[in-house]
């Protein structure tokens, strides 16, 4: 197996006297969809920010694509950042620019392609995330929440990153929209051979598209496939999967699996 795209070793995160992560370890394999789950306040978003280099770790190392971001200066960091795409919770689109300008930004920042080719690539990305072409000329405030997420995704995959980070991709979407978004992510992951790291609360998403699940428990990470995690004897995990929402999603998942096996 090739080297993991992200390797977290002994990560420590503190806020004042409060320790959020204590010796956390995590590997993200190439080409997988890894879902990070955990209760509120267990530091999922902080972990994501730390991996992205937006926050300095208080201890331990993080290697992204074989490079330790903390060791690199801004100049050396750029090529690594270029290979990562991030979809923030509400898209984090730049509100003063149109969607097309938002998608164009990474191209002008990181490449020297001519304007026409970039325009064509923007059209391709819009089509890839399932947005109509006329969405390109709109500003984010004119879009619905679901469309904003798609536009954010289009910006995140603009440069064909190796790793895609998603922060609660289906939060705030209706169940149908969420299921479609899950499909879209799976679809793009296959087409572009992405490694995907996503934070989610959505049990449906977990069951539908995650290859492996990482659970933040007691400041550490427990990683496994859905079945392994389901069997993990920790009260939080048990409650998570055996609560009413968990059971419903599970039933759907098993049914789908059953159909496949027939």
């Amino acid at each position: 197996m090739s080297a993991p795209v992200i390797r977290v070793r002994g990560l420590v995160t503190r806020f004042g006297s409060q320790t959020v992560h204590d010796g956390l370890e995590l590997d993200v394999r190439r080409g997988e969809i890894l879902a990070i789950v955990g209760g509120s306040g267990t530091g999922k978003s902080v972990l994501l920010r730390t991996i992205l280099g937006l926050k300095h770790p208080d201890g331990g190392t993080i290697e992204v694509l074989g490079r330790n971001l903390a060791d690199l200066d801004d100049e050396a960091r750029r090529p690594v950042l270029r290979r990562m795409g991030v979809l923030f919770q509400d898209g984090a689109l730049f509100s003063a620019r149109t969607v097309a300008q938002n998608i164009r930004l990474p191209f002008t920042e990181h490449t020297d392609l001519d304007h026409r080719l970039v325009t064509q690539l923007i059209r391709v990305k819009l089509a890839m995330v399932g947005l109509p072409q006329e969405a390109g000329s709109k500003i984010p405030a004119e879009l619905s929440g679901g469309m904003r997420k798609r536009a954010g995704l289009a910006r995140a995959i603009a440069l064909d990153p190796d790793v895609l980070f998603l922060d609660e991709p289906t939060a705030g979407l209706d169940p149908i929209g969420a299921a479609k978004f899950d499909e879209l992510i799976r679809d793009l992951q296959r087409a572009l051979s992405l490694s995907v790291v996503m934070i989610t609360h959505d049990v449906d998403t977990l069951c539908a598209i995650a290859d492996r699940i990482a659970v933040l428990l007691d400041k550490k990470m427990v990683v496994g496939t859905l079945d392994e995690i389901r069997a993990y004897p920790h009260p939080w995990v048990q409650e998570y999967f055996s609560g009413p929402r968990g059971r419903a999603a599970q039933a759907g998942h098993d049914a789908a699996k059953g159909r496949k096996d027939d």
Binding site: T98, A100, T119, V124, Q133, E134, G136, S137, A191
Partner: peptide, 23 residues
């Protein structure tokens, strides 16, 4: 297979071409 499906995604000619800039 992956290359084929990626190429198939590029077929956006059928989509109506709308200007990307604001009118």
């Amino acid at each position: 297979h992956a290359q084929g499906s990626l190429l198939a995604r590029m077929a956006i000619e059928s989509e109506p071409r709308r200007p990307l800039a604001r009118p």
